[in-house]
């Protein structure tokens, strides 16, 4: 197989500055599926974290990043759900509102950039499910995640708002479960808290409440007897994995849920070494599944 799918990797802020396990695992596992990732210099924040402060600033930042990829004639792959929303929403606005597009382009001209709308934006979910496809993923599985009973957290920003087109359905997302089945795992398709927020958007100004949200969801997953949680966003993962102990303290519960990036599980099932997938960087007890689970 020589046909490569080529994307500009748009890393955003959080993944490349602390959520290294996501970046490591996607850089390892996607090439197995003939995806070529191109590093583009000069990217900045996607703008999403600034929406509450100044929406025009958010729009400008998003457009700036898309324009950089357009210069290289590459579609963008944004692994972060927040980034993916910012870029998709920006595209939606600038492709439909010429006055706003001109206004943003006037600002972009200071850096000799122009937004034209020529390139597309994908996230991990649609890249794997829609562009690569379940069959191709199945073909690469060497170590099926047999017996792994997993819950999926999609992340609000990955599935809403429907109106602008998102990687999966806003109320009944099921693509990640299909991918997990292809890897040999046993995803739980539905649990009452499936669409509950991870809490991350409140981290900036109401951290206690943010952690309460995180803890409540993890506690519920634990109660259901589910063995692990899978996510596809550095913000969600930061909450569920890195902040799990703190979240437990906040709600006065002992939390013990292994949390993985989907791309880490992809790599494990493909037979890639755990270290290359950044599994030593997960703060949650992943060995409960990676060792006892037999992968």
């Amino acid at each position: 197989m020589t046909t490569h799918m080529k994307y500009a990797l748009y890393p955003g802020c959080l993944m490349p500055t602390e959520q290294y396990a996501y970046e490591l695992s996607l850089r390892e596992s996607l090439p197995v599926l003939q995806v070529q990732l191109v590093d583009v210099p000069e990217f900045s924040c996607c703008g999403e974290p600034m929406k509450s402060v100044n929406q025009l600033l958010s729009l400008y930042l998003a457009a700036r990043n898309i324009a950089l990829a357009e210069q290289q004639q590459l579609d963008l792959y944004a692994p972060c759900a927040m980034c993916h929303l910012a870029l998709s929403e920006c595209k939606h606005i600038l492709d439909h509102n010429t006055a706003m597009r001109e206004r943003i382009n006037t600002l972009l001209s200071a850096e000799n950039l122009t937004y034209t709308g020529s390139q597309q934006v994908v996230h991990t979910i649609d890249l794997l499910y829609d562009h690569i496809g379940i069959e191709k993923i199945k073909q690469q599985v060497k170590h099926p995640l047999k017996g792994w009973k997993l819950a999926v957290h999609y992340g609000c920003h990955a599935i809403r708002p429907k109106e602008i087109g998102r990687p999966d359905d806003s109320e009944h997302p099921l693509k990640i479960e299909a991918i997990l089945r292809a890897l040999g795992a046993e995803p739980v398709e539905d649990y009452p808290e499936k669409l509950d927020c991870c809490g991350a958007p409140l981290l900036a100004n109401l951290p206690e409440s943010a952690l309460t949200k995180t803890g409540q969801k993890l506690q519920a997953i634990q109660h259901h007897g589910i063995q692990g949680l899978v996510d596809v966003c550095p913000w969600c993962h930061k909450m569920f994995d890195a902040r799990q102990t703190k979240a437990g303290e906040t709600i006065a519960a002992k939390l013990d849920v292994p949390v993985f990036y989907l791309t880490q599980l992809l790599g494990l099932a493909f037979g890639l070494p755990a270290e290359k997938l950044g599994l030593h960087l997960n703060q949650s007890p992943v060995e409960k599944l990676t060792v006892e689970g037999g992968a």
Binding site: K51, S52, C156, H157, R160, P161, K162, S170, E171, L195, C197, G199, P201, L202, K213
Partner: peptide, 9 residues
């Protein structure tokens, strides 16, 4: 607001 967008949806 947690910006979950459920209200809009």
């Amino acid at each position: 607001c947690m910006t979950c967008m459920k209200c809009r949806e």
